[in-house]
């Protein structure tokens, strides 16, 4: 046995030496280098680096001078940061609820075998192709107290009419919301519509034979069936909200009154690149990461962990 297999080995090696593992498919490994570098160095390494340096007192330049939770204590005692978090929370919940509910309702309307579906969809989705800067500037103009909606209505004779969300600290978030919904609802509608179209036609037929009214079929059968679509949409929208930055810059620059519409992403940028207080910027961005993880981990668990149990 052993003699024969040795002889075999010699024979094969004289024909073609079995190549060592690492050298097989070399070009595929070379081709994967950018992906590996991005994943390991930038995404993983960069994240860890920032988290680590958030425990230092870096100012103008990153310095490995560890000071424990000092940066976090300072962060959470800053009024500006607290307002940012509060704003993000209010804006996030409102935006999430409105985009998902409105997106779903619009998708349901679009799913009624309507005429001109393509036209309606094109109109509802085009804002999504525009940048937040363009979105913000247009709505800033429409909401302009002097010339915008308020001005027009006042010119019509309602001189006491007030609609000036962007210059009132109490309502500025609604101003952002109007623009944010305009930009993003069409996208959610498209995701929901794709979800609705993915549902087996026979389910609808069965419900009709069973005599279930349409609205009840949506509530009792279709929405539960679309749970994965809802969850995925929520995660995508939520992680976008946490990143909210451009829209605020364009519409209010964080104002009025200095910080009425501040958001965390703005705080990070200002401390990292303007105020040259890197430690604060790192600490704030770590908190942003934390908030995303709070959204992401339950989702990943539901999506990938739940599957194993069937």
């Amino acid at each position: 046995m052993s003699v024969a297999s040795e002889a075999d080995a010699i024979r094969t090696s004289s024909v073609a030496k079995p190549r060592p593992r690492w050298s097989r498919n070399v070009s595929s490994k070379i081709a994967a280098i950018p992906m590996i570098l991005t994943a390991l160095v930038v995404f993983l390494g960069g994240t860890i680096w920032t988290v680590v340096y958030s425990f230092t007192n870096s100012k103008l330049l990153p310095r490995a001078n560890f000071v424990g939770f000092d940066q976090y204590e300072r962060l959470w005692s800053q009024n500006r940061w607290l307002v940012s978090i509060e704003n993000l929370l209010y804006y996030g919940v409102m935006s999430l609820v409105f985009t998902v509910v409105m997106g779903f309702i619009l998708a349901v309307l679009m799913d009624q075998k309507i005429r001109f579906e393509d036209t309606f969809r094109t109109i509802m989705l085009y804002p999504f192709a525009l940048s937040f800067i363009v979105t913000g500037l247009v709505w800033q103009w429409i909401l302009n107290p002097e010339f915008g909606i308020q001005g027009v209505v006042r010119d019509l004779g309602w001189t006491s009419f007030t609609f000036d969300p962007l210059n009132n600290p109490d309502t500025v978030l609604f101003g952002l919301l109007i623009a944010g919904l305009w930009q993003g609802t069409g996208f959610v509608m498209c995701l929901m519509l794709a979800g609705l179209r993915g549902i087996d036609e026979d389910i609808w037929k069965a419900a009709r034979v069973d005599g279930i009214p349409t609205w009840k079929t949506y509530v009792m059968v279709i929405i539960p069936m679309m749970r994965p679509v809802f969850i995925t949409t929520l995660v995508i929208v939520a992680s976008g909200i946490i990143r909210l930055y451009d829209l605020v810059v364009a519409m209010t620059s964080g104002g009025p009154g200095g910080n009425a519409s501040q958001v965390p992403a703005m705080y990070v940028y200002d401390y990292m690149f303007q105020a040259q207080n890197l430690g604060q910027g790192f600490a704030a961005s770590t908190m942003m990461l934390l908030s995303v993880l709070i959204v992401l981990i339950p989702w990943a668990y539901l999506e990938f962990g739940g599957k194993k149990h069937g």
């Binding site: 389910i203 009792m220 059968v221 539960p224």
Partner: peptide
């Protein structure tokens, strides 16, 4: 129905 169309 062919695809059963049970409410999952």
């Amino acid at each position: 129905f062919q695809s059963y169309a049970l409410y999952p």
